[in-house]
Amino acid sequence: MKIIAVIPAYNEGTRVGNVVSEVAKYVEKIIVVDDGSTDDTAQIAKKAGAIVLTHIENCGAGAATMTGIDAARMLGAEVVVTLDADEQHSSDDIPALLKPITDKKADMVFANRFGRRNNIPLIRRVFNGLGNIITFAATGKWVSDSQCGFKVFGPKAVSQVDLRMSGYEFCTEIVRESAQHRWRTAEIPAKVLYSEYTLAKGQSFANGVRTALKILLRSFLR
């Protein structure tokens, strides 16, 4: 199966190079979507061997991910792996996440950062729990780790996925799509790394509230 990785990246110049060369062990091609970065993310990703697409303005992780999936489809991808550019996820988990797809047991696989022993700050656990609850309220589907950027889309999901939300709301939207199209889903425990770097870059409380409001507004207006 033709497997392509999609990595949304916003000002991750110090990290994205490593991520690309690590992920390259497991996939055929890598698409990095540079989301209007003001640093050298694009050049570094290209040097590391990725196909780089550039948003001329910052649009958000959701828009970047969808651009990457669109591009992967154009390049004939059957399976798409998405992961963050900030070295939070471990590429060694990719085979485990791919397994339900290659076994034809699932159309979409979510990584579950809470499914194994991970050192996750309490505040992050709380935020992610709230994210799960909001996601459940808006979609009617429970996913143990709905807000994680590490996912695998199988052939059916790759051909059907169509995200409209541009920010972090896209994680909830993906759950919604999976419920709507009745994709068979699987959840696989995965490693996650919280370093000072990722914590400093991570989401603020205000950002979370805004994301939640957007999700509710959207699910009502559709």
Binding site: I51, H55, S166
Partner: peptide
Amino acid sequence: QRQTRMTRKLALKDIDKTK
């Protein structure tokens, strides 16, 4: 959304070229 659509379209133009 409109602005995002424009930005995404511009980015995807490049992939046609690389192909």
